[in-house]
Design a protein around this nucleic acid. Structure first.
Lengths: 333, 333
DNA sequence: TTGTATGCGTTATCAC
DNA sequence: GTGATAACGCATACAA
């Protein structure tokens, strides 16, 4: 593989000149510039980004840690990050990691990313790792949290207003006449999920509705576990007349259980889910849902991070709140 | 940020010893090892992966280029890559790039990845870029194609047997009594899509069924475009009695159009789609589909790549074919 | 059992 | 307008 030295020799100039041609960092006459360009082309020279990073002390790479790229919310989010971050000065790239909601794995991944000297970090924190992340916030590269907040860490944050969005959602169920409203909750140490349950509790209390013990059914945040939990929820007696699910996996799992039990929605039971689906309009039942844009959150996180990396911004941490929308369809009755 | 030198000084040993402790690359007495470890902990030392990469001439990072991480097939695939590649020697990481099916962008992304000196490449090629990829196959790092083949490039390949899978699918529609079978085709320069249409044509011909002009309706590979194309397809006269869609986006777009037109499936028109959906069982209509596992393809690609990177394998390019399954539900009539 | 010193390919400082 | 060269932080060949 050709190096800058080979190019210099071939063009009959010094390595300094070659470097300056590639970076347009000082004046070079057209004529020598041409000679350099020709040499580069003939040798198929590609500058070594590793050596460059070492010397410049920046890599042009950021790390993104999400729990599961398979969750449409996160794949949207990652796309938002990528499309946005590419636009910046030296074409920032993204190293993607799945934490699988596992604290220890998250720490390991962050260790590797730090070793790779990423210029910045976007994280949907799995929960826990508080001390670790606080330390990273102090000594590490710029960092932004997305989807989930960690107030004690010095980092920008992008979320939706989960409490309010859930209040609107549950209020809607109540307005539709439902009273035995249960929750299918993902077991995550994530502020977003906790806030959604919090919104539910507040709204129920306000409406003078009680939350029976056993009405908040939990499971791991994946379809299979949610399916199993959905079964348990449907076996409750008396059966709830509506369910608020805390994310898309829970909705999907519940639908499976419903289907299996031969129940129909909304006739037998109403459903309102957090997270919308691309296909929601085209299939039955049409699920009433709180829509939040993963793409927007990712894009905003990328913008904030880029501003920190380029030192355009250096103030105290900011918290951006992205809007949500309750999309009323049929499943809420 | 502490360097290996700081650690050496603090521990009262040479940098060589520190390096050997970290890499377990030569014997060090327990006692000095302890001193080094303590110094590392106290300084919060993190080895500089960039300097290390420069010296060792490998980065422990691979590049993955897919067209759109938002497509569930690709997010599954990327997860398969990640989960598998992490298991190898030096915890390989993945830089993820979306080519958006754009030839020029793909080239640009590959250029950046090469500059970053990735140890290997997994690509779902957008099509075109033939000369570029051929050159990369010769001079570049190990490379594996996934989902789509490029026979003239020296690289391992992982795909499904798209022709056969489509034959089985179309045969099924014919067996169900459909004769006016149309295709909703994604406009991609991808072998996979071409092969699916090829399977359709062969099967129709074999069955003595004609393919009327206009029965192969094309659009860009995204839901909105497919929706528009679906409208055109449904306006055909006489209307086809079944549609074979070449991927998940096309299926979704068609369902939207169907819905909008007030048609029901399978009563008014049958549908069989390439690519299955996680939620297919729980919503109506239940779509009959050719299921292929993106995860498996990604995992296999990662294994092949890792074998090349570690030089465990150095033979001629191999082509692995992953199995598919026709899942018969209700939409096929 | 451990230490010294070279070089990986750049960029940037200083010199001319 | 261009060149020589010292760093960047590590791994390793060679020495002791």
């Amino acid at each position: 593989m050709a190096t800058i030295k080979d190019v210099a020799t071939k063009a009959g100039v010094s390595v300094a000149t070659v470097s300056h041609v590639m970076n347009a960092s000082r004046f070079v006459t057209e004529e020598t510039k041409d000679r350099v360009l020709v040499a580069i082309a003939e040798l198929g020279y590609r500058r070594d980004g590793i050596a460059r990073s070492l010397r410049r002390n920046r890599t042009g790479t950021i790390g993104a840690v999400v729990s599961d790229i398979t969750n449409p919310f996160f794949s949207d989010l990652v796309k938002g990050i990528e499309n946005t971050i590419h636009g910046f000065a030296d074409r920032l790239n993204v190293i993607l990691c799945n934490s699988e909601e596992d604290e220890a794995l998250e720490r390991e991944l962050l260790d590797v990313l730090m070793e790779k000297r990423v210029d910045g970090l976007i994280i949907a924190p799995a929960g826990g790792n508080l001390a670790y992340l606080e330390a990273l916030g102090r000594d590490g590269p710029p960092m932004v949290f997305v989807d989930r907040a960690m107030p004690s860490v010095a980092a920008d944050t992008v979320t939706v207003d989960n409490v309010s969005a859930s209040r609107v959602a549950v209020r809607h169920l109540i307005d539709r006449g439902h009273v035995r409203i249960a929750v299918l909750k993902a077991t995550l140490h994530a502020s977003s999920i906790e806030d959604r349950v919090q919104g539910y509790r507040l709204t129920m209390a306000e409406a003078g509705l009680s939350v029976a013990p056993g009405w908040i059914v939990e499971s791991a945040s994946n379809i299979d576990a949610a399916h199993e939990a959905g079964r348990r929820l449907l076996a409750l007696s008396p059966r709830p007349d509506a369910v608020f699910t805390t994310n898309n996996f829970m909705t999907l799992g519940l639908m499976r259980a419903l289907n299996e039990a031969g129940l129909s929605c909304p006739a037998d039971i109403a459903i309102l889910g957090f997270d919308d689906f691309q296909w929601a309009e085209a299939f039955r039942p049409r699920i009433t849902a709180v829509a939040q844009s993963g793409y927007q959150q990712g894009a905003e996180a990328a913008r904030l991070l880029a501003a920190r990396i380029t030192k355009t911004e250096s103030g105290p941490p900011v918290h951006r709140v992205i809007g949500t929308q309750l999309i009323i369809r049929e499943s809420s009755g």
